[in-house]
């Protein structure tokens, strides 16, 4: 966990990740790597249907939410489970990608229970938005 926290801090500099305060670190584990001029997010989301995953972009935040379909929830109630360790329900996680990124620049695919999202790096916008505070000569 120490390594993870360190990495998160490094990541925060440019990407600024935020998550819900009760976020379970066992869920939606994510790798983010830099590939050319993009960030590639790879998120563990085992056992979902593509249609149960929603990716949205709002005010510079990329939000990924996933909900297990009702079919699964019904099965939960039949009491034939001997061991249940897997989590069911809804989860979401947000990543700050910058307000200069538009939704048509983001590509996503889901294979082998991994969601991959490619987001262009937004360095230009970061620089443009940087507010320089002038020091006045008094």
């Amino acid at each position: 966990m120490r390594n993870m926290l360190t990495r998160r801090n490094v990541f925060d500099d440019l990407f600024d990740m935020s998550m819900f305060h009760d976020f379970d670190s066992r869920l939606m584990r994510t790798d983010v790597k830099e590939v050319d001029n993009n960030y590639v997010l790879e998120m563990d989301l085992p056992g979902f249907d593509k249609k149960d995953i929603e990716i949205s972009l709002e005010k510079g935040y990329l939000n990924v939410s996933a909900t297990h379909s009702t079919a699964n929830e019904e099965k939960e109630d039949d009491g034939r489970y001997i061991i249940r360790e897997r989590s069911y329900g809804s989860y979401s996680r947000s990543f700050y990608v910058g307000e200069g990124v538009s939704d048509d620049q983001i590509k996503a695919s889901y294979t082998n229970g991994t969601l991959s999202i490619t987001v262009p790096k937004n360095r230009n916008e970061v620089i443009e938005n940087k507010k320089v505070i002038q020091i006045e000569n008094l």
């Binding site: 056992g47 034939r80 061991i83 249940r84 360790e85 897997r86 229970g113 991994t114």
Partner: peptide, 30 residues
């Protein structure tokens, strides 16, 4: 190294279904 409990890996559900045991193991990206 990652500080994870082993219980965070290969989470499994085991259930009875139609005279069989069904084991479902999480293995994202494998």
């Amino acid at each position: 190294a990652f500080g994870y409990e082993t219980t965070n890996m290969m989470r499994s559900d085991i259930k009875k279904e139609d005279g069989n045991y069904v084991v479902e193991i999480e293995m994202p990206g494998v």
